[in-house]
Amino acid sequence: MKLVQFASITKKMALAAVGLFLLVFLPVHMGINLCILREDGGEWYRNACHFMGTNYIVKIFEMVLMATILLHIGVAIVLTIENWMARPVRYKVVSKSKTHFMSRYMIWTGGIIGCFLILHFINFYFVKLDIVEGKYTAEIEEVDSFFQQKAKKMQSGELGEKEQAVLVAQYQALSQLPEGKLDKSGKSLVNLSKEEVKKYCGEDFEAEPDFYTMCKEFFKNKYYSLIYLLCFVALAFHLMHAINSLAQTFGLNHSKYNKVIENFAIGFAIIVPLGFALIPIAILFLGF
């Protein structure tokens, strides 16, 4: 009868525990995202992305996060199938019982969020994993030191003819840098395609994804923006019940604190998705 032979409450608590972890991650992600809205040409945001993309502790967390997401989805699917199996013959009349707001639809709002994650990964995360091509950024300083190394090698005659030609071409390209490829502070090359990375930074230069530019470009597309906004609404609905449910699952139900938990859930479920939603709204409607 049961797909997974843990006690129902154990499974439920597992779902809630990983959910809690995801819940903590959301404000962090939102905080970084909101840096986009700072009028510094993306400096803060790029710095944050740089930190998140290179710090080893963050990388470990990233793996844990991925596992958590998969676990959350996995347990949710198992529970849902078991729950469907518990009522093989459905009622003819749709239930009219009062239930906690959106609690009936957790698997559906969760499903929407899952689909969103796939889209979101294709749009952004896979760029980082180099599965999908995006836009890239490189600090001038790094490009320069990379160039200097090669130049030294050329001087000492270690490079072949072909490689020498490439280096010269790169030098020429850099000196004729088109508009918009340099950030506000002039410290980084931005908005580079893969081709351009090769062209300006060298064949084997490892450029970081330029999420700032990608983001701004991306949300100018109103369809994508709209899809994202809808998904944030789903997230809000999901969270609204999730936080409440989490407390109940861990037995935190007390007449003195129930109101606090309920209000916190509403607050969190509105503020966090709204934080995410501000970016497409700002870009699309405010021409940011």
Partner: peptide
């Protein structure tokens, strides 16, 4: 073969004796 609880609280709403969901929390 009873299903798992997903905290929808329909049970609390329909209980003729108005037994509260805090009982479920206490059991958890």
């Amino acid at each position: 073969g009873f299903g798992n609880c997903t905290n929808t609280y329909a049970c609390e709403a329909e209980c003729p004796k108005e037994i509260k969901r805090s009982n479920i929390a206490r059991m958890n």
